[in-house]
Write a protein that binds this DNA or RNA. Sequence first.
RNA 1: CGGGGUGUAGCUUAGCCUGGUAGAGCGCCUGGUUUGGGACCAGGAGGUCGCAGGUUCGAAUCCUGUCGCCCCGACCA
Length: 588
Amino acid sequence: MKLWSQYFIPTLKESPADAEIASHKLLIRAGLVRKLGGGLYTYLPLGLRVMQKLTQICREEMERAGGIELQMPHLHPAENWQQGPRWAAAREIMFRADSAGDGKRGPREPELVLGPTHEEVITPLVKAEITSYRDLPKNFFQIATKFRNEIRPRFGLMRAREFVMMDAYSFDPTDEGAIRSYHAMKAAYEAFFRRIGVRAIAVEADTGVMGGSFSHEFMIPAEIGDDDVIYNEASGYAANREKATSALVPADLPDAAPVGAREEFATPGAVTIAALEAAPYGVAADQQFKTLVYVGDGKLFLVVLRGCDELEEAKLGALGFGVFRPATAEEIAPVMGAKPGSLGAIQGTIQDPAALAGIFADQAIRLIGNGVTGANRDGFHVRHVNVARDLAVTKFGDFRRVRPGEPDPRSGQPLQVRRGIEVGHIFKLGTKYSETFGAVYTDDQKQNHPMVMGCYGIGISRTLQAVIEQGHDADGIVWPWAVAPFQVLICVLDPQLPEAMEVARTLAVAAEQAGAEVLVDDRVERPGVKFKDADLIGIPLRLTVGGRGLKEGLVELKGRSQREVVKVPLAEAAARVTAAVHEAQANA
RNA sequence: CGGGGUGUAGCUUAGCCUGGUAGAGCGCCUGGUUUGGGACCAGGAGGUCGCAGGUUCGAAUCCUGUCGCCCCGACCA
């Protein structure tokens, strides 16, 4: 039992100006966290208690799924990362640590970074310690603070520079084993989110800088989420926008027959899709080719899409370039022979085709029968362009951004879109890290193989805020029983009456014996203040003990999400509280 | 990093355009009256107006720079 007057719950009537969304405001108003700097937060006692609930439940589910908990350092030798496969991509989000704090390393000071995640630490550890198939599979996890120099921290704990994450790493001897581990983690994640009382859906996701063969994100549907989930309720298809695809192009689509010979025509000043759509050209956007130029690992490459489609840049990750970015006009002109706006992928018109690493075409361009593209000559385009006959495509792929309403790849029904908060991510990594770090084992035939890895993360601190985003009303937070900082709040309206405090203590003992954690509001405040605070901090079960009720021999019982108050005779109060706690536990 | 905004007391803010004594509400302290949904009265403490330059007789206010923070985009748990 904790007495409010002796605890620390600094609630606020007004929300600070820098909080924009409901969960962020409530986080601060309910006294859960305070900001130190951008993306840096102190967990106040109430916030810490919720964090502890989340980590404990997460730990239990990970252990149930066979996970083994350990704890790795927050400071990593930069060397580990330099030897790893993603130093170039990861370094921009990593904080470097140096003792002087002036951005320079002192003499004989190792170069250290603050860990954004731990593949580069766990893989060398496993390499050193595990060499036999007899010791596999293994799944190690930790719950620890991560550091990422987010380009833009925002929304409180939602995207922070320092945050708490559960990260797990599985090592299997075979690919089938790795898939089993992956599914065990997927099930553990589902159990975790179920237990903490939030709806989270698993969606197919892009593997991003992580690499690896496949992955799912766990999303909590919320308007303020910064990811788009593309889904179809009936078929169960759900994917992150970056990964989402549609059945726009039939697999058996025949190549269109060429119509007429290619023909160059003058288009002075027309350098956009829209300009060619307009008079006097009148070429529909879906009959134009959009030719984009990127730089991948130092070499230019082309991406060709329909004029009406947008590039989904994340999908370029499938091309295997370590780092890529849009090319500048200065880089483009000498290779293509024209400035952006007049570019095309027609064989023979590219000035220096040898300088290109490839021409990658979205498969949807096959829907174009007789299209128009740039002539690689400023102020000119080409008509009667036919994909099979004219374009020098290295490889077709899926590079376009899916739009709602397009056919679901599973059922053909229209796809829908909604916003979500990513709270977890699981990856089947494959052997990318084990090969780089030499994490191999010997099988029963004395053969060595790289271990097949998976990695898994849950943003615990982000989940804390997502719980609030999903569970609040106009008055404040509505905690699910399993993660509430306390389960029972006893509001003592007249704490100066010894009798009232006496009743409160008796009920607190009853609730505690039933297995609840109890907060007693013994502050000398007006009832209105206490009720407002009670709603704000969102404790699931509220008991009210007041002088007025006591005269009638009554106390009151109210669920945070219920409107009505139940008056209970004093003599039955302890039993009723016990019953209410048991019932809530059973439903949690 | 690009675009937009903002910085005045612990919190929310007015004042800035048009330069001239820094104001309010909440919170806090003292006393009194109140007492079942954020009470009232009286008194009080608390601000080098983010920082540094500049213009001016005079700068919270105008100019320049800088830092912090917020929002939109790329990135992520």
